[in-house]
Computed example of a mutant assay.
Amino acid sequence: MSAIGIIDYGMGNLHSLGKALERVSSSGRVLISYDPEELLSCDRLVLPGVGGVRECMKELCRLELNEMIVEAARSKPMLGICLGMQVMLEWSDENGGVAALGLFPGKVVRFPDPSPGTPGARLKVPHMGWNRVRQAQAHPLWAGVPDESWFYFVHSYHAQPADPAHVLGTAEYGHPFAAAIARDNIAAFQFHPEKSQNVGMTLLANFTQWSP
């Protein structure tokens, strides 16, 4: 039987994501684990998370999951969600700067705070709530998902991929930013598909069937 591995490094509530994947996976079990060997035995992997890149990298390294992720990314279908997307890039500006996994060239930067006293300033950091995502290119993960669908976001930092060809979808919050990225057998979403109702479940279902 095939298995979907959710990488557990202690940052984030994985219950809702696990349940969502169980609902949409027709042929495999869902395994939540921090054991590198157990995760490498899975057919596909999901890297979720909330919080900051520095603490994420610290825990991934402590649990010896960082090398496992890089190894698995060479061949297995892999999905990053929220912080899991950010840590897939090379660098984050958070907390004075920290190196990340480097699966995508590029960096992670903070949304600018509104200037104090600016009349009509509406942007608040973190960016929290529903936002439309414009599909930048066709991809199997978008199958059945209408362009400019609404997805749920919670983040203060966003990815700046170095290669525009890696941008799978964009959203707007003060300025356009990469809401989804992909290359080869890896994809990642800044939003939470498991909290994004039917379109989010469709994305997760597409991932369970994705054969890059």
Rank of each mutant, 00 (worst) to 15 (best):
H166Y: 10
R122S: 12
W130V: 06
V167C: 11
L141Y: 00
L168E: 05
Q137W: 06
H127Q: 13
W130C: 11
D147N: 15
P161W: 03
K124A: 14
P126N: 07
S156Y: 01
A159G: 00
T118P: 02
H155K: 07
D147C: 09
G169H: 06
V154D: 10
A159R: 00
A165W: 06
W150H: 15
H127F: 08
A159S: 12
N131F: 05
R134T: 11
Y152A: 11
L141V: 05
G144Y: 11
P164A: 01
Y157D: 01
Q135D: 06
W150K: 12
K124M: 13
P119F: 10
Q137K: 15
H166R: 04
G120M: 10
A121S: 15
A136R: 12
F153S: 00
P140N: 09
K124H: 11
L168G: 06
W142I: 04
V125P: 03
G120Y: 06
P119G: 06
S149E: 10
R132D: 13
H155L: 07
A143Y: 05
N131T: 04
R122D: 05
Q160Y: 03
A162K: 10
H139W: 05
G169A: 13
L141I: 13
V145R: 02
Q160I: 13
P119Q: 08
G129R: 09
K124S: 14
R132C: 12
H166I: 01
A143N: 14
G120P: 01
Q135V: 03
P161S: 04
F151Y: 04
A136E: 15
R132G: 14
P126R: 03
A121G: 10
